[in-house]
Structure formats: structure tokens, C-alpha cells
Amino acid sequence: MSAPVGLSVMGAGLIGKRHIEHILARPEAVLSSIVDPTPAARELAVSLKVDWFPSLQDMLSKNRPEGVVVATPNQMHVGNGMDCIAAGLPALIEKPLADDVVAAQALVEASERAGVPLLTGHHRRHNPMIQRAKAEIESGRLGQIVSVHGMFWLIKPDEYFDVGWRREKGAGPVFLNLIHDIDLLRYLCGDIAAVQAAQSNRLRGNAVEETAVMILHFVSGALGTVNVSDTIQSPWSWEFTAGENPAYSHTPETCYHIGGTRASLAIPQLDLWHHPSKASWWAPIERERLSYEKEDPLGLQIANFCRVIRGTAKPVVSGREGLKTLRVIDAVKRAAETGYLVSV
């Protein structure tokens, strides 16, 4: 077996710490250093007995890793990513790649020109449950995908909005939360050609949206609907149904439905419904619950990053895939603001 891949983590905030935990737990990886100018990050590095650097430049001159996980604030992603590419370092950048499509495209194109791997941190694709769902869809078991539906309903408490930026445009559930759901629906059902959308902020009255609904027009001809709100007390969201993050309650509900001509699939339970004898609403319908082996997708994401660096695998979520998802989110925002059908 090859030696573990040396990885550095830029940004030791909440998500950065989770990446660090998974790097330490994976046999494929070893934590090379932490790059973050804060005293708390330095203390963390000392406690873990790894090198600490206030900047990427300091790190490169003293302890060059084989790859970098970028978990800095969103507005720093492009600059940090460009620095990694310039140094020839493969980078796994937390979603979103950038605050806007133009900057994200520049980052992706720079990576492709340089031949330096760039991955996007849409970790939910790595979930074995999603991998099983994708395998079933690609096998043709659902037949032709006709329609899909996704939900993100939960309630964020009043104190969540005590932080000023969370009340401003760009900090609502469309950009912060829906981007995960759109990425999974794209992964499972194919690219999206156009969107229609409407949004509202009538309850809290902040500049940012709190509820949005949209129609997705897939390239395949399938149609989808997605409903997102952070003002509803509800169990219907990935956070509450997937059991992926222990910070949230785990409920036995669903958040996505994918409908095909031969069967339909409810996610995350992986309940497959079909008429075994005849495709008719008068015929009996049966449920089959598909099985899979549970494993933390953040750890699997680190494993994939290591294999990409070693040249033995392709990215599950490339930089260009992250860009495609960001384009859909941008189209949703423009559609909601204008009331028009917007091409992606």
C-alpha cells in the first residue's frame, strides 16, 4: 500500500475541524499542517502535534503537502484556490467554489489549464446511500425519469439572525442550503437546462429570502419541483432525514422523490415503489427498501481526494461539477427576481 497522502487544511473553523477529524481517521491520509492565522488554530495544531502556519506562503516554504483542503470563508475560496493552483497543489474546496459564477469559472479554467486537480466539497454525493440510488437509476430500474421533487423545510431560530450577514442577500436558504439539494438532484437525474422560481421574505422582513419554490427543467426532459424554507417547523429536509450530522434530529421521513416510468424512489430511505404485475393504478403496488453500507461521506470525500492525488481515481465532484451546480443556483436567483424562465 502506498504511503498516506499529506494534506494541509486551510481554515480551522467548524467545517475545517470536521475535515481535520476525518483526515486523522483515514488510513489514506495524514495531516501535514493547519493553515489559519488565528490563535485558536495555532492551539489546535499544537494539541494535534502538527505544523501551524498563518498563510499558505509560509507553509509552502517549510512543509509542502501533497494537497490542500480549503475550508476558509466563502469569499476567500477563489483567492485560496488560485494560490494552490499556482503552487501546483491539488485542492479540495468547500462549497460553494465562489460567491459568483464568473469567479468560479475563472478558478475552474485556471485549474484545467494548469492540470492541477480541483475538487468541490459537495460531500453528500459520497454518501453510500446516494451512490446506491444513483446505481439504481443508471441501471434503468426506474425506467425513464419523468419528475422529481425535493424539500428543505426547517426553522432557523431568531438568534441565528443576530449575526448581521445572515440577514443580507446571499445568506438565505437558496445559496447556503439549496445548493446541496440541487447538486444531488443534478447528480442523480442529470443536468438542468432552465429554471423558474419565486421567493418570499414576508415573515422576517430581512433583505434575504426565507422561502423559495422552483421548477427545474432537466436536459432529459424531466421536470422537477423544489420547495425550500427556513421558517417552517418540519421534519422534511436532508438534515433531519439523512442522519448524516448528529447536530440535527433524525426522523424517518423523506426529502426527495424521484419518479420514473417503471418505479419511484424515496430518499433517503431508499424505498423503491413499483407495480410488480402490471403498470396500472388498479394493480397492487409494492415497496422494496434498498440496502447499503453506511459510512461517513466526509471521510469518503477525503479518501477520494487522496486517490485523485495518487492518480488512481477521478474526482466524484470536480471543480467543473461544482461550477455547474453554482450556475443553477445563480439561475434560480435570477428567475426569482425577474419572474422569467431562466436558462442555465
Rank of each mutant, 00 (worst) to 15 (best):
I34F: 04
A25I: 10
P39F: 07
L48N: 03
E43W: 03
A41G: 12
H19V: 07
V35I: 15
M10H: 04
D36R: 01
L48R: 13
I34T: 04
V30G: 03
E21Q: 15
G16Y: 02
H19L: 08
S8P: 00
S8K: 06
I34P: 00
L44T: 11
R18M: 13
L14D: 10
H19Q: 10
E43F: 05
V35A: 09
H22E: 14
V46N: 09
R18Y: 08
A41D: 05
L24S: 11
H19E: 07
G13H: 06
A41W: 01
R18K: 14
A12M: 05
A40D: 09
V35W: 01
P37A: 05
V30M: 07
H22Q: 15
A45D: 06
V46I: 12
E28T: 14
I34R: 03
S47P: 07
V50L: 11
G11T: 11
K49D: 15
I15Q: 08
V35S: 06
L24M: 14
I23E: 01
V30Y: 05
L31Q: 05
G16P: 02
V50N: 08
R42K: 15
S8R: 03
S32E: 12
S32H: 09
G16C: 09
G16Q: 06
V35D: 01
A29S: 14
V35K: 01
S47V: 10
I15H: 05
L48Y: 07
P37Y: 09
R42P: 00
K17G: 11
S8L: 09
K17W: 04
V35L: 10
R18G: 05
S47R: 14
L44C: 10
I15V: 15
V9N: 01
T38N: 08
L14Y: 07
T38R: 15
E21I: 05
I23L: 12
P27T: 12
L44H: 09
D51P: 02
R18D: 12
D36N: 15
S33N: 12
S8N: 06
A40Q: 14
L31P: 00
V9W: 01
G16R: 03
D51T: 04
L48V: 11
G16H: 06
V30H: 08
A41P: 07
R42W: 03
L31M: 11
I15S: 06
S33C: 13
A29G: 08
G11A: 08
G16V: 03
K17R: 15
A40W: 02
S33E: 00
V9A: 08
I23S: 01
L44P: 03
E28L: 12
S33M: 08
G11V: 11
S8W: 00
A40K: 12
H22N: 12
P27E: 13
T38K: 14
T38C: 03
S47K: 12
A41R: 00
V46P: 02
L48A: 11
A40H: 07
E21F: 04
G13L: 06
H19S: 04
A12P: 02
